[in-house]
Amino acid sequence: MIVDTHCHLADAKFRDDVEAVIARATDAGVVQIISVGAIGAIENDLMTVEIAERHKNIFAAVGVHPHDAKDCTPDRIAQLRDLAASKKVVAIGESGLDFHYMHSPPEAQEASLRAHLALAAELDLPIVIHCRDAEHRLVEIVRETGIPARGGVIHCFTGDANAAREFLALGFCISFSGIITFKNAGAIREAAAIVPDDRVMVETDSPYLAPDPYRGKRNEPAYVMRTLEMLANLRRVDAATLGAQVIANAARVFRLVGIGD
């Protein structure tokens, strides 16, 4: 069994068959899913919460992706605060910094990140962080503001072992996606081997970043098993044991309802 700690079930790529996608995940042993809004307009977050509220073992995170940080106004933060009143919302995000694509100016990304950190602290929720080519600046900002009391997760980690150590020192968990199955992901695989047991998570980030042998196809939560197997191999542990550890870590950080409760 495993939990997919980060996917996007409200994405347009799932619009026609989201229920079938969820059923396949269940059949594959995915016992809990955290679906993240954040991408695009607030309607994406609304749909994300609605999907979570229809399914016992699906939970939601709401936020503004750093790509859209230019649209992160005080009104948008207020809308996220209202959405987070749902008992199925377990995190704020994904927020963060993406200095690779720069779809929003750096100053807008930093302002949005600070607003999300403040909202997570206010609501006593963990924060989900996206970081691409911006590890140093992200660490600086979190050192200034402090990590929310409930902690947070660096999702879809793409840094090296040194970056992992810095994030761990701040108190973050680190989540690995299907990227660790890619041939050119040696530095990420090295980092995956050093994260402590109680800080490691796995995810799909679906419908993006399908792991080998599905690379190039639409990703979906069922494929998290492939990432779990690779991560277990890197850490020299049994996949079932690691899966149970990830479930425990997600339950602790996101305050997830127990399986079968």
Rank of each mutant, 00 (worst) to 15 (best):
R218N: 08
D198E: 03
D205M: 13
R137P: 12
V195Q: 03
D261K: 15
L256Q: 06
P74S: 11
E140H: 04
M230N: 03
E110W: 06
G152W: 03
A164F: 08
L231I: 05
E190G: 04
A239P: 13
I127R: 15
A250F: 01
R218W: 13
I58M: 08
S95G: 12
R226H: 11
V224M: 09
A232Y: 01
P105K: 12
L256V: 08
V62R: 10
M230S: 05
D160I: 11
T73H: 06
H136L: 11
T48W: 03
T48N: 08
R252K: 12
H155W: 08
D17I: 00
A41N: 09
H100Y: 14
H6Q: 11
E190S: 07
T5H: 05
A121E: 07
T145R: 15
K70C: 13
N57K: 14
F172K: 15
K13V: 06
V246H: 02
P74C: 10
E53A: 10
V237G: 02
V200E: 02
I33S: 00
Y214T: 10
V202S: 01
A69G: 08
A118T: 05
P66R: 11
M102Q: 12
V139F: 01
A244L: 10
M230F: 01
A161K: 15
V21E: 00
V139S: 03
V30W: 02
S177N: 05
V224C: 07
R235L: 06
H155V: 14
H155A: 15
A25P: 03
R137E: 08
T5L: 14
A78L: 09
S35Q: 06
L117N: 02
L97D: 00
V31I: 09
G216Q: 07
A115W: 02
F167S: 11
D205C: 12
F254Q: 14
V3I: 14
G243M: 09
I247A: 04
R150V: 06
F176P: 12
N233L: 12
V257M: 15
V153W: 01
R199P: 04
L234H: 09
A185K: 08
G29F: 00
V90R: 10
M1Q: 07
R81L: 13
M47N: 10
F59P: 05
G178C: 13
D45P: 14
H116R: 15
R252M: 04
G186S: 05
N162A: 10
N44G: 12
V139L: 10
T73V: 13
E229K: 10
I141W: 05
A244G: 04
L256D: 03
